[in-house]
């Protein structure tokens, strides 16, 4: 009988203590940490999106997020707090720690293209300051397109189309100075102004366009273009295409394609379309990105991008109509 009890004891140990210790270990991992551990599940929006999609922390609190991806590859970013995880592989858990230094309501988002609804995968982190329960009032300046009263939903085709694609490299050799505010003026408007000016009569149309391309890139700088390129690849190319032609794989069946006004161009914007791009000022393009496409499937980026990020993406978009951008 003694050996029966021994055998039974071993079995009980293996069947009860072993599983219990597994769950115990997981609980210990959570509770033994000096940081506040928050488990976050990242699923594609059709599988539930972020869970939780609202995270509440305090200013100065040491927070550790444990992010799991049960379905496909996801990324995580709280742009305002400079917290990011570039890759969460399915079945893996990625941890990221941070201490929020200011109170506020900050959006977070998935940074990897996880499904056709990827751009809906967003959440909010509330950082409160126990000393100051009320959130600080947001400082808000209306975006430039509103100040300029640009109707960003209307078409603004260019009146003048360059004979060839303008080249900054050719423009650089002209030694031609172009003073223009590209944020408020479209390249087309800048061209019209130069063409009307007798001082530029010595230059043909193509040369003026080349000079505009050069001036534009000089103005925005290589760093901005490189930052824009990174963001474009991460956030835009899936729909607008790696070549900017609007033919990206994720843009093929957007909801807006069927419900949009019949007179509007269908599908993601084509940044290689000279008429549309040269007729648009930077303010207009920035407004589009900032506000989004209102039901077309184009998400708003105003809550995730800083102003500088928005302008840098606009600068990169110009490389689809102007050749030879400066290398960083």
């Amino acid at each position: 009988m003694k050996r029966e009890w021994f055998a039974l004891g071993i079995v009980a140990l293996l069947v009860i203590v072993f599983p219990a210790s597994l769950f115990g270990y997981q609980a210990w991992r959570t509770n033994s940490s000096d940081a506040r551990v928050i488990d976050v599940i990242a699923s594609s929006p059709e599988n539930g999106g972020w869970s939780p999609d609202e995270i509440r922390v305090n200013v100065g609190e040491h927070v550790r997020l444990r992010i799991a991806a049960p379905d496909v590859v996801h990324g995580f970013e709280i742009p305002a707090l400079d917290v990011r995880v570039d890759e969460i592989l399915p079945g893996h858990v990625q941890e990221v720690e941070f201490v929020a230094t200011r109170a506020g309501r900050f959006p977070f988002a998935c940074t990897r293209w996880c499904s056709v609804n990827h751009w809906r995968m967003r959440g909010v982190i509330w950082v409160s300051d126990p000393a100051q329960p009320a959130l600080p009032a947001p400082t808000f300046a209306p975006p430039l397109y509103q100040q300029l009263r640009i109707d960003i939903d209307a078409m603004h085709p260019a009146q003048n189309i360059p004979p060839r694609k303008p080249s900054a490299a050719r423009g650089a050799q002209l030694n031609l100075r172009v003073d223009a505010d590209f944020r408020t003026q479209s390249p087309d408007a800048v061209f019209a102004k130069l063409r009307a000016d007798a001082a530029y009569d010595a230059y043909d149309d193509q040369q003026l366009w080349d000079a505009i391309a050069f001036a534009y890139f000089q103005n925005v700088g290589a760093e901005n273009i490189a930052n824009g390129a990174r963001r474009y690849a991460r956030d835009c190319a899936a729909c607008h295409g790696e070549r900017g032609d609007g033919q990206g794989p994720a843009g093929k069946d957007l909801p807006g394609l069927t419900t949009m006004h019949p007179d509007m161009p269908r599908g993601p914007a084509n940044f290689t379309d000279a008429s549309a791009m040269l007729g648009a000022s930077d303010a207009l393009l920035q407004g589009k990105i900032l506000r989004g496409g209102m039901g077309t499937g184009m998400p708003e980026w105003g809550s995730l991008y800083t102003d500088a990020d928005l302008w840098s993406v606009v600068a990169f978009l110009r490389t689809f109509t102007f050749d030879d951008p400066p290398a960083p």
């Binding site: 997981q26 799991a68 858990v93």
Partner: peptide, 10 residues
């Protein structure tokens, strides 16, 4: 999965 049987980040 030997090191992380549940996929809990172990």
């Amino acid at each position: 999965v030997l090191s992380d049987p549940f996929g809990w980040g172990w």
